[in-house]
Design a protein around this nucleic acid. Structure first.
Lengths: 419, 419
DNA sequence: GATTAAATCAACCGATCTGATTTATTTGTT
DNA sequence: AACAAATAAATCAGATCGGTTGATTTAATC
């Protein structure tokens, strides 16, 4: 419930203040007042309280005309968040602080995406990271974000995995298991949506308020950003771009959905069939032979992806489309260019133009997004509102950040942390 | 801005109260308190103020156990809204009151969608309707909604209209002209989006919080509802379904976009070519020959529309898809069924299921939506939040103020297309 | 007469606002 | 170099507004 009574009003304005500070990087109390429209007095009271709570930190005085101002910025150790990413080929976990900096991380590669080993890895990593935190810091964990594919058991044949083994996922509730293992609140996101959030928040590709972020991982998916807010979908299944129907048969594809023409496993299958080391190739070290295989894959993938992008534009008038994923940067760029070229061959009458851009984060976007999203939910004035911190910080110039000693001020407002 | 200071808090809670009353049809003060979470005292004060403002009206006391309660419901004459719809074949205007009842309306058929005559008709109709209002009522006009196609000058060849004449639209700002003519605030919507809002608010087809509403008019477009909110798009161009790429050539279609395979003008062209009176046919009086032409059109239109629907589902996991438009009900139903059948032939792995339903309003949905949207913007706790009044009213049972125009039995098409 | 629940009354609280005041610095003048 | 004026942040004190709490009244049924 937003607003309602005095307490809700205060909570709302606190978020607006944090939001303003995050956007600007650092603001004096007077600037906070101007940025939020609050009176100077209220801004002062709220800032003071947030400093006491350890969420904001005062920097060195800045002298100008008149009384020097004391800038405040977000305190790194004011809050922490844990992100866990479950994929079909790996499990990762990452602990970040309020500024988005990585505190610690873990990663495990998988042979097959079977429920048992995967969940063991995920819960194990999460527990390890949490146990390494000081108690004071652990008390400031504001949530756990879990990013995973929409359906772990779909497209088993595409994976080359036994269908029966994957069916075990239907009986598993990864969110609940992670919650049980960590004792923290877990929010679940589609993996591509999480990656999308990371690109919005810390990447450079998406400045638009309305964007489609395509992520090529083992499969292919997308995140949808509308009015600066991540749209997760009524059933967390927005951006299921892999299910987009193809126009017809694509050579080498087993089915009639985008995933059969443009996915990481499809590319890997080709590489493996040609006797190429997939891991090396995906690290950009495959050489000419890998490039040739990639070009083959690209010839089918790019037009199919282009059709998907154009189709998506007919549903939502995205201002920007980013393409990212686990591909090595050189290949990612070629995919972007080829897709762009293919998009231009479509009749786009009636569609608003969109900018096609290369993602800037890559495969790690998913864990990072999983970690960032609980922070957003806790501190942004609107749930799902994505504010780019890096860009905002850069614009504001470097500031004195985070003195942040042991806080632990048992202020009455700290227990509003849960709400 | 939402919240902020005491005044904002009051405004927000007032909207919540109106929202609660609209949803329930009629509520006592105590029920308002329970529905909103406000204290009884606040609910009482707010309701009393809204009654004083003429937005709510007290009904007859209801006796039960304890002190009789006085139900309040929204007062029809508490606010008015004017909707104007500009189309390629007609211009319509409609004045409605706060309950959504039509007060007065106008309509003009057009020969060709040329800027001059169209805008003259639109501003003329609007002025007429406003001048017929009493001064007291006119003071309660809360806005003018304008629904029009995204690009009046696109697809000129499909219309059989001279391209040069249509290009005149680029120099025209219909919203500004209407604002100048009426002196009221004008909000502009895509025509399909407006129709979508009407279906959400007063229709029966869309109960889901997340839906796609396809409207077949002269061309074809769609409205997008996300989390109960109408999504207009960053450039008001969400749901540009007509631009969805086709899989290949469709017999009889001139181009490679959905609009070339499934549009009202395409159907009309066929009918005319067969020597059939289009107006009669569109009124459902075309006879067997018209039916045969329709079947031909349908054979190309339905699969193309099905592909568009499946593609849309891969972008947003719509829970429901409605198909509506200017077609006579029998044809609309056939379009729905044929589309449904075609959808089932697609591989839908990885997509969440959606319910495919028939729209319940038809061609007038666009004006109605244009009229309803300013009311929503003014009285709903969140902008763009769509609350179905009719359904809510029905659920609450008949109330003192409910004019209860015997609306039709529900049970529209209830097909689930899931494997 | 007891019970029930709506409606109301009166005192209080919390968050923000307004307007005046203080403070520390730069700028301009003598 | 010394001093006054200008500037703008920060703060203080009182007022306002909206919502809450808890007790009280009212009008019906059981």
């Amino acid at each position: 419930m937003r607003g309602g009574d005095a307490g809700g009003l205060r909570a709302f304005n606190e978020r607006r203040v944090i939001d303003a500070v995050l956007r600007a990087g650092a603001l004096s109390k007077a600037e906070v007042a101007r940025a939020t429209g609050l009176s100077g007095q209220s801004a002062s009271v709220i800032v003071e309280r947030l400093v006491e709570q350890g969420l904001l930190a005062k920097g060195d005085k800045v002298r100008g005309r008149g009384q020097p101002s004391t800038p405040v910025s977000v305190a790194g150790s004011g809050a922490f968040s844990l992100g866990v990413k479950i994929g079909r080929r790996s499990v990762e976990a990452r602990l970040i602080d309020l500024t988005g900096e990585t505190v610690a991380e873990r990663a495990t590669r998988l042979e097959a995406p079977l429920p048992g080993p995967v969940m063991e890895a995920a819960t194990g990593q999460a527990r390890e990271l949490l146990e390494a935190m000081s108690p004071a810091h652990r008390a400031r964990l504001c949530g756990v974000g879990l990013a995973l594919p929409g359906e772990m058991d779909a497209w088993a044949d595409e994976l080359g995995a036994p269908k029966a083994a994957l069916a075990g996922w239907r009986a598993v509730d990864p969110g609940a298991m992670l919650a049980a293992a960590t004792g923290a609140e877990v929010s679940v996101f589609n993996d591509a949506a999480a990656a999308c959030a990371a690109e919005m928040l810390t990447g450079e590709a998406l400045e638009a308020g309305c964007a489609l972020y395509v992520h090529v991982g083992a499969f292919i998916g997308a995140g949808v950003v509308l009015d600066g807010r991540l749209y997760r979908g009524a059933r967390l299944n927005a951006g299921a771009l892999g299910s987009m129907p193809l126009a017809g048969r694509v050579p080498g594809a087993k089915g009639r959905q985008l995933i059969h023409a443009a996915s990481g496993v499809g590319l890997a299958r080709r590489l493996r069939a040609a006797g190429i080391d997939v891991t090396r190739a995906m690290a950009g070290l495959g050489g000419a032979e890998a490039d040739a295989q990639f070009a083959d894959w690209l010839a089918g993938a790019a037009p199919a992806l282009a059709r998907a992008v154009v189709s998506a534009m007919a549903v939502i008038d995205f201002e920007a489309v980013a393409i990212d994923g686990v591909l090595p940067p050189a290949w990612r760029l070629r995919l972007l260019d080829a897709t762009h070229e293919a998009v231009l061959r479509f009749d786009r009458t009636g569609l608003s133009p969109a900018e096609l851009r290369e993602g800037t984060i890559g495969g790690e976007a998913r864990v990072l997004g999983a970690a960032l999203l609980p922070l957003q939910a806790r501190f942004s004035p609107e749930p799902d509102l994505l504010i780019n911190r890096r860009r905002a910080r850069a614009a504001a110039g470097p500031t004195a950040l985070d003195p942040a000693p042991g806080f632990e001020a048992p202020s009455p407002h700290l227990d509003r942390w849960r709400s």
